[in-house]
Design a protein around this nucleic acid. Structure first.
Lengths: 339, 339
DNA sequence: TATTAAAATACAATCGATTGTATTTATATT
DNA sequence: AATATAAATACAATCGATTGTATTTTAATA
């Protein structure tokens, strides 16, 4: 007969011992004799006892809850990161509150308020496109609540991050285009306040330099990287007096938007414009031609971020940046027969 | 100077009144004089007071937390449902714990244990493919913890559900294929223990009957509806002595898998086989030809389910089934020039 | 056996907010 | 002004688990 209302006092009363001993036994404290422990554990099981986390947490002033803030839960990368976070957190006895900023700084701030009100033990955050710094994390800093950035981070010292090497990944992607004999490569970049897009841009530029390809400012277009931006960006590029034959996009969504528009106006991919994206969304393997892209291991990043945060909860003086390996997935959108 | 350690006692001490009055003031009780209320509220704001939910919930024995169980968070339908749930729950002052069963009954059971241990106030669940009934919800029933099924439900009386009309949607989809002059329509169905797949099948059959098209058992294939099942299913269908010219799939994932394979072996879509899916995943508008499918409004379903659960939390005698409207999105995979 | 150290258990305060009951203060009525 | 009534506030127990300190029991040593 499982009854949720069984408390340590009930067990104590039945066994004629003190509730503090019961508590210690249930926490496997060495201060309780083995014989008593088994007696208590048996009775607890028999009565269907379940620890009341509210009471326990109140006493310990811990909530065993982590807050997670992502721009959008429906993006495949974030949903797999969340899956990794949940998995790790649960194993360590933490619950997770998931919130989406929808790319709005204002929402991000109000979410942080909510998380504070809920006294989370730590926060995992991937910042919105509008976010320029970590000022709005002041509440966390003041209360010494640890936080870890993952993927979209702030370039600020003494922060902890789990990220990929955006520079290297972009470098790899662009070098691949060059390898496919592209000579005029355009780049669709994201908001330049975000480190990841800055670094992807730097990687792009650096790859061009290495291979002695002229870098042209006009071929770099920053946008919010939504599907709706794609056609506009493509038009701008095509209006230029350069014969663009390669396109490196800072995410898959804009890459796919661009491909759709290019196909619409009859430009062949990859023959006329070889295209590479970033993130490996589910759609990318489905579109035709399938999109070459950088694979970001979402789940792995989630696991690493959660573990780092849990470490920081016991010792918030830890400052660490973990870099997770990415790889280039070569698909048809960029593979062309050498001319 | 915001300090998270401010309690009602601090406020009470400073103002020289009792903490119970402070508590009542903060809860806007009519038992406190207006003047005192403003005095307390002002001081609370000044000190940066934040209610400790742990203490409050312990006393009220409520957690203000909802549990959500979905098969897989990365499916677009579920992530948008979750977004709707979060939104609604937050507004009503609830937190949400999200868990994924990964289509495993065993995991679903252990998640329910975790949710019980966390004393959630209610549960929203979309059952796994392995789940056959609601026996494993016994823990919830015993403790009178309300729960609401959404999308994937159990066909059990006195349960509350937020669902779509799978029968009607399937009927609509198949009628559309018939309208496109398909005469031998195959159906890829899901596990028959799930109501939604049973109903989609019934809708399929009923549409055939209405239009005097012979129903053939061999043209119905049940599988787990994963991408890996698709090619296998298609092979079975093509091996039959019927000239299949239409395909209605119980979800988009298997539909897309089927399309990929059909294209591979040179069968033209929609000319030779017109195809319709179910759920409107993101990929479906991207694949070529774009997939005709049933649009399930995930966010709307999430909102409705959360609202219904919150209602049940105040009165668990409510038993209600809400049906959310779907619509058919016609795309190229099924639209063929009339022969 | 007496004494001491160590092991096991009991006592009691605490975490912060809530709420039924008791008491004080203010207002209204005759 | 005296009394009755209502309004405002104070008191104190409670939710269930944890934990420092005190006490009792057991084991060890002389």
């Amino acid at each position: 007969m499982e009854n949720s209302k069984v408390t340590i006092h009930d067990i104590a009363d039945i066994l004629g011992i003190d509730s503090s001993t019961v508590s210690r036994a249930l926490n496997n404290s060495p201060r309780v004799a083995k014989k008593t422990k088994t007696k208590i554990l048996t009775k607890a099981k028999e009565l269907g006892y379940r620890r009341n986390h509210l009471a326990s947490n109140l006493r310990k002033s811990k909530t065993n809850t982590l807050g997670v803030i992502v721009p959008r839960i429906s993006r495949y990368f974030f949903s797999s990161a969340i899956a990794g976070i949940e998995e790790t957190a649960f194993k360590a006895g933490y619950n997770v509150i998931i919130c989406q900023s929808l790319e709005s700084l204002e929402r991000e701030q109000s979410i942080l308020d909510t998380l504070l009100a809920n006294r989370v033990d730590g926060v995992l955050i991937s910042i919105s496109m509008e976010t320029k710094n970590d000022n709005h994390l002041n509440g966390l800093k003041l209360r010494n609540i640890p936080y870890v950035f993952f993927d979209r981070h702030c370039n600020i010292e003494k922060n902890s991050n789990v990220v990929i090497d955006d520079f290297e990944a972009a470098f790899m992607a662009v070098e691949h285009l060059i390898d496919q004999k592209c000579t005029e490569i355009a780049h669709f970049s994201g908001p330049q306040n975000l480190e990841i897009y800055k670094n992807r841009f730097k990687g792009y530029k650096s790859a061009l330099e290495k291979h002695n390809i002229t870098f042209r400012e006009e071929l770099v277009i920053s946008s919010s990287l939504m599907e709706k931006d794609a056609a506009e960006n493509v038009k701008k590029i095509l209006a230029l007096p350069f014969n663009v034959d390669g396109l490196f996009c800072a995410n898959d969504v804009v890459a796919i938007g661009a491909m759709k528009y290019l196909k619409e106006i009859g430009i062949k991919i990859p023959e006329e414009i070889a295209t590479v994206g970033f993130s490996n969304e589910t759609i990318s393997s489905v579109i035709e031609p399938a999109l070459t892209t950088i694979n970001q291991p979402g789940s792995k990043i989630g696991v690493a971020a959660a573990n780092l945060l849990i470490d920081k909860i016991s010792d918030n003086t830890i400052h660490k940046t973990i870099i997770v390996q990415t790889n280039l997935i070569q698909r048809k959108s960029s593979l062309r027969t050498y001319k």
